[in-house]
C-alpha cells in the first residue's frame, strides 16, 4: 500500500507524541485507532505507551485513554466494558492496550480471566519483545538468544519465547490474530474483523523497537517484513481456537533467518548453535501452523 492510498480521514494519533523515532508501537496504535475509531475507549497498562501518550492534560490520541496498573489491564477492560454497558454506551469499542510485559508476564492472569469469561473487548498486545520502557530487560516474550540488560554479555536470553497465540487459542476465544506494522492492510483487516465480532478478541502485534533491538529507526518496516518472511512471526488468525488460517500465503522458501537477526544488535554475537536452535523453533512452528490450517480445512 502506498502512503497516498491510506485512509487518512480517521487519523487519531496526534503529532508531537513522545515515542522514539521509528517506534513500531506508535505506528501500530496509529493503524489501530484509525481502523477502529472514532468511537473508541482505550485502557492502557504500564508500558512504553504510558509515556508516548504524553503528560496530561496533553494527550497523543483523539479518544479517551484510561491508564491502569501493570497487572490489571484485562480486568480494568472488563470493568470499563461493563460500566459503559450499564450507562447504555454499547456502541463504544473498548480496546485494552498492553506491551509484552503486560500481556505475557505480569498481565497474564487478568488476561486469561477476561478471555475465559469472554469479556466483550479487544485486547491488543504490542510486542517489542522486552521491557523497553524501563530499558530493555528480559520478558517472556524475548526470543531465545537475544541480549538484554538483564541478560548482558556473555549471557543471552535462555528459553523460548512464550507462545502467547497458542495460549489464547486454548481459551477458545472468538478471534485471535497476529499482525505487524509492515502489513497495514492485513492489520486493518484483522482489527475490523475483530470489531465486528462480540466477545473476547486478541490481536498480537509485533512492533520493532529501534533502541531496544539495536537497529536504525529507518529499519522498522524492513524488520517487521523480515520477521514475517523469515517465518519468525507468521501472520494468521484463529477463530474459537479451532479455525486456523494463514493470512499471507504459506511459502516454503523463506528468507534466511540470519537476514532478520543480522541487522539487530541484540543478536550481534549469536553463534551458530543458537541460530540453529532458533531456526528449529521456527521450522517447528511452521509445521505446527500448517497442520492446524489443514485440520481446520478438514473440519469445514
Amino acid at each position: 500500500m502506498k502512503i497516498e492510498e491510506m485512509n487518512r480521514e480517521n487519523e487519531m494519533l496526534y503529532s508531537g507524541h513522545s515515542a522514539c523515532p521509528g517506534c513500531g508501537a506508535a505506528l501500530a496504535v496509529r493503524f489501530l485507532t484509525r481502523a477502529l475509531g472514532p468511537n473508541l475507549a482505550i485502557v492502557l497498562t504500564a508500558s512504553c505507551w504510558s509515556i508516548i501518550a504524553g503528560v496530561p492534560p496533553l494527550t497523543a490520541l483523539k479518544c479517551p485513554i484510561l491508564h491502569c496498573p501493570f497487572p490489571s489491564a484485562g480486568s480494568v477492560g472488563s470493568g470499563l466494558r461493563r460500566g459503559l454497558n450499564a450507562k447504555g454506551k454499547f456502541d463504544t469499542t473498548v480496546v485494552v492496550l498492553a506491551g509484552d510485559g503486560g500481556t505475557f508476564d505480569i498481565g497474564l492472569q487478568a488476561l486469561s480471566g477476561a478471555a475465559q469469561r469472554n469479556e466483550d473487548f479487544i485486547f491488543v498486545c504490542y510486542d517489542n519483545e522486552a521491557y523497553m520502557n524501563t530499558g530493555m530487560q528480559t520478558s517472556s516474550a524475548t526470543p531465545f538468544g537475544a541480549r538484554t540488560n538483564t541478560a548482558p554479555y556473555p549471557l543471552f536470553k535462555e528459553g523460548q519465547k512464550k507462545d502467547i497465540m497458542q495460549i489464547m487459542a486454548a481459551h477458545s476465544i472468538p478471534y485471535a490474530a497476529t499482525a505487524t506494522v509492515a502489513f497495514p492492510e492485513d492489520m486493518e483487516y484483522k482489527l475490523k474483523t475483530a470489531q465486528k465480532i462480540s466477545g473476547f478478541r486478541f490481536i498480537h502485534i509485533l512492533s520493532p523497537c529501534p533502541p531496544g533491538w539495536g537497529t536504525e529507526s529507518s529499519e522498522t518496516i524492513e524488520l517487521s517484513r523480515l520477521a514475517v518472511s523469515s517465518g519468525a512471526f507468521p501472520l494468521f488468525e484463529v477463530r474459537y481456537g479451532m479455525d486456523w488460517k494463514m493470512t499471507l500465503p504459506l511459502e516454503e522458501k523463506r528468507t534466511p533467518l540470519s537476514e532478520y537477526l543480522g541487522i539487530q544488535k541484540r543478536f550481534k554475537d549469536i553463534d551458530r548453535d543458537r541460530l540453529r536452535v532458533l531456526q528449529e523453533e521456527i521450522d517447528y512452528e511452521w509445521e505446527f501452523l500448517k497442520d492446524k490450517v489443514k485440520r481446520s480445512e478438514v473440519l469445514k
Binding site: 491502569c68 477492560g77 470493568g79
Partner: peptide
C-alpha cells in the same frame, strides 16, 4: 479470577 482483578474491574466500571 482474583481479588486484585475484583478491584481492577470495579476501577474500570467506576471510570464509566
Amino acid at each position: 479470577e482474583s481479588e486484585y482483578s475484583a478491584l481492577a474491574c470495579c476501577n474500570g466500571a467506576a471510570a464509566a
